[in-house]
């Protein structure tokens, strides 16, 4: 099982999926989001924060690069949209965040994903042809056991594994 696909047809559902996904996360986890603008990354992130009982605003870190949330565990929300040079990703301070007892959420992670090898979730957001609301979320983790946990956790949702 390399990928798990879940279809969402509304921002509300995307947010719910994020909240449910947050139940799987523990200290040290890194989640990379990959997908085009408008794909649902922000909404999914809002869901994760909601799932961790954070009720404040979850704003985009594109310009400010890093936001920190006082959740339990702590969340660092990073954004690599403005980072253009591959060799510079370490300079965003990621090593400091990795050493902290926290979960890292990284937007535009395709620019940075090979920096991590283990304990990394990837969530790809795809547009679905023929519908402007529909999105396909594709989950991947390097560890088979984590993929199995995800499959069990989301078994009630429309899903396809391959």
């Amino acid at each position: 099982m390399k990928h798990i696909r879940i279809i969402t047809d509304s921002t509300e559902k995307t947010r719910k999926l994020g909240a449910k996904f947050s139940e799987l996360l523990t200290i040290g986890d890194v989640v990379g989001f990959i997908g085009d603008l408008g794909g649902g990354k922000t909404t999914f992130t809002q869901g994760i924060l909601q799932g961790l009982n954070y009720d404040g605003a979850v704003t985009s870190p594109t310009f400010t690069l890093v936001h920190e949330y006082p959740t339990n565990p702590k969340i660092y929300h990073l954004d690599c949209f403005r980072i253009k040079v591959h060799s510079d990703y370490a300079s965003i301070g990621i090593d400091d965040f990795l050493l902290d007892d926290a979960i890292l959420l990284i937007e535009w992670a395709d620019k940075i994903i090979d920096y991590f090898i283990l304990r990394t979730w990837q969530v790809v957001f795809n547009f679905v042809e023929g519908s402007d609301q529909r999105r396909e979320l594709v989950f991947h983790h390097n560890k088979p056991a984590e993929m199995q946990r995800l499959a069990d956790h989301f078994r009630d949702f429309i899903m396809e594994t391959q």
Partner: peptide, 23 residues
């Protein structure tokens, strides 16, 4: 009041990217 998600300047910059303009 404040934004609940993106800043307005960011929306301008990202829509520019959606339309193939430079960031």
């Amino acid at each position: 009041g404040r934004t609940r998600d993106d800043a307005v300047g960011e929306a301008f910059d990202k829509v520019a990217v959606l339309c193939g303009l430079n960031y």
